[in-house]
C-alpha cells in the first residue's frame, strides 16, 4: 500500500482516493457496502451552525452522463454532528475531513472555532455551494477578498489543515486559489458543481425552484480537469481533484494533471465500489508501470 501514500501538505493519506462532500453522508450508510478503512479520506456532508432544512423538491434531475442537484445543504447541524456523527467516523482507520459551510464570515469562524477541540484530520471550507445564498453578488468563492478572509480566519481558528473548496463558476479560478493559498490553506479542492439548469417543457418552468442547480458527473469531467490544470498553474500547495471521476483512467488523468489526491462524488451513487476499485487499480498501475511512488506521477503532465 505504501506506494500509494500521498501528502496533502501536512496531511498524510494512505492512498489518494477520497469521497467527496455531500455524496457520502457521514459514512454510516456506505459502511454497509464497502470497507471505509480502505479509503484515503472521507469528506463529510457540509455542516452548518444550525440544522438546515434544505431546498424544496425537486432536488435532483438526471442528465446525459450527469446529475443536477439542488439539495441546499440539508444537514444535522454542528451539535448533532459532533455528538453523533463524528464519533462514528473516528472509529475508522481513514482520514476524516470535516466540511463546513456558513452563511456569513462570522458563521465560518464560529464553526472553525467550535470544531477546534474535536478530533479529525482536516477542515474543508466549502465556500462554493451553488444552491444556497452566499452574498448579494454571488458565491463566497467568486470573490477573492471574501475567500481570503474566510480561509484566513478558518486557518487561525481551527488549528487544523484547511482545504478550500472552490467553484468552477468563475472566469479565473487561479485568482481565488492564490488568495486561499496566501490565506494559509494547505490545499485547494477543485471543483464544486457547475451552474446549470433544466426546464420542464410541459409547464415551461425551470425544474428547480432556485432555477440554478449544480451539475456533476462524467458530463463535467473534462471541465473539472481543466480547472485542476488552471489551479495547479496558479498555486504551489497541493490540489485535490474531483468532478465526474468514475474509474482508474479518470483518476489518473486528474493525478497527471496535478491533483495530489482525487475524490469520487456522484460515482458513489452509481456504484459504491468505485473508490475501492480505483485504489486497487492504482496499485496495479504503479506496479505494472514500475512507478515506485504514486506521488511521482502527480503533475507529470507533458504539456510542452
Amino acid at each position: 500500500m505504501d506506494g500509494l501514500s500521498v501528502k496533502i501538505s501536512s496531511l498524510k493519506l494512505k492512498n489518494p482516493v477520497m469521497v467527496a462532500s455531500g455524496t457520502f453522508g457521514y459514512g454510516e450508510e456506505y459502511a454497509q457496502l464497502i470497507d471505509l478503512n480502505e479509503l484515503g479520506a472521507i469528506v463529510t456532508k457540509s455542516i452548518t451552525l444550525k440544522p438546515r432544512l434544505g431546498n424544496p423538491q425537486p432536488r435532483l434531475w438526471e442528465t446525459q452522463g450527469g446529475l443536477l442537484n439542488s439539495i441546499g445543504l440539508q444537514n444535522v447541524g454542528l451539535a448533532t454532528f459532533v455528538d453523533e456523527k463524528l464519533p462514528y467516523l473516528q472509529k475508522y482507520d481513514t482520514r476524516v475531513i470535516v466540511s463546513i459551510a456558513g452563511e456569513s464570515v462570522s458563521e465560518y469562524c464560529q464553526l472553525a472555532q467550535a470544531l477546534k477541540k474535536e478530533t479529525f484530520d482536516a477542515l474543508e471550507v466549502n465556500i462554493s455551494c451553488p444552491n444556497v445564498q452566499h452574498t448579494k453578488k454571488g458565491l463566497f468563492a467568486q470573490d477573492k477578498d471574501l475567500s481570503y478572509e474566510i480561509i484566513r480566519k478558518a486557518v487561525r481558528l481551527s488549528h487544523k489543515p484547511v482545504i478550500a473548496k472552490l467553484t468552477p463558476n468563475i472566469t479565473d479560478i487561479g485568482i481565488i486559489a492564490k488568495a486561499c493559498e496566501k490565506a494559509g490553506a494547505e490545499a485547494i479542492a477543485v471543483v464544486n458543481t457547475f451552474n446549470a439548469m433544466a426546464i420542464d417543457l410541459k409547464t415551461k418552468k425551470p425544474v428547480f425552484k432556485n432555477i440554478v442547480a449544480g451539475l456533476c458527473g462524467p458530463a463535467i469531467k473534462p471541465q473539472a480537469l481543466y480547472k485542476v490544470y488552471e489551479v495547479k498553474k496558479a498555486v504551489k500547495i497541493p490540489v485535490i481533484g474531483m468532478g465526474g471521476i468514475m474509474n482508474l483512467n479518470d483518476a489518473l488523468e486528474f493525478i497527471i494533471t496535478g491533483a495530489s489526491a482525487i475524490a469520487v462524488g456522484v460515482g458513489n451513487f452509481v456504484d459504491p465500489k468505485i473508490p475501492i476499485n480505483i485504489i486497487k487499480g492504482l496499485q496495479h498501475y504503479i506496479k505494472d508501470n514500475k512507478i515506485g511512488q504514486l506521488k511521482q506521477l502527480v503533475g507529470s503532465l507533458d504539456a510542452k
Binding site: E29, L60, N69, I71
Partner: peptide, 23 residues
C-alpha cells in the same frame, strides 16, 4: 415514489415534506 440519488440515505435528494416541517 421519488427520483433517487444514492438510494441509501446519504444524499438527501429524494425527500418528502414531513408533517413536522422537516424533509
Amino acid at each position: 415514489e421519488e427520483h433517487m440519488g444514492c438510494g441509501i440515505g446519504a444524499c438527501m435528494g429524494c425527500v418528502v415534506k414531513g408533517t413536522k416541517g422537516e424533509y
